[in-house]
Amino acid sequence: MSAREAVLGAVRAALGRPSPDPAAVAAEAGALLADPDAIRPSLPLPDPVAAFAARVVSPKVGATLDRIGDLQELPEAVRRYLAGHELPRELTLQPDPALRRLDWTGFELREAARPDEAVALGRARWGIAETGSLVFHSGPETAVLNHFLALHHLVALRAADVLPHLEDYAAVAGPAPRNLNLITGASGTTDIEGSYVRGAHGPAFLHVVLVGAPLP
């Protein structure tokens, strides 16, 4: 008998009932998602973009935030950030056509992050207001490692792509990508005496540039 049959057989014997009706199981699973508002935190602000913006700079996420009216202004916003941190104008740029076609004159760009990369810039597909998360799907236009190797992780996000809750992402996501990364803050650890330190293995700094949001 294969291990598969042994495990499934033992589970069925322990449950002591015939195989369940898939339609009944699906209906029950669906019912467990009813009334999502009853089980998730309500947003502190009615506007999801405002709630997201407040959330990412709160201590819960600890990111920094910049707002620009149009994606064309992104290189300038990046220049501001690098200057503020006294970093040279070089970075790993996510191979996303929307980012590539911007005017990066004066920048040294790389496609793939180096092991000791200082800065990586990417574009998130969605933002989640509830948690302040940035959502990435891996693929030809998004390398996973770029989000993790750099010390400074810069992320552009269109305000129109901010979703209120995690379940809203599940509703719009489509088929599962190879990697779905929900990034909610910089890398951190509390493994030494429970004290919180940033930049454990991944980025120590997360900087969000919200695009298309009216400037406050």
Binding site: A176, R178, N179, L180, N181, L182, I183, T184, S187, G188
Partner: peptide
């Protein structure tokens, strides 16, 4: 939420 929540498929 954890800083990194990843789904591998």
């Amino acid at each position: 939420l954890t800083q990194y929540t990843t789904f591998h498929c």
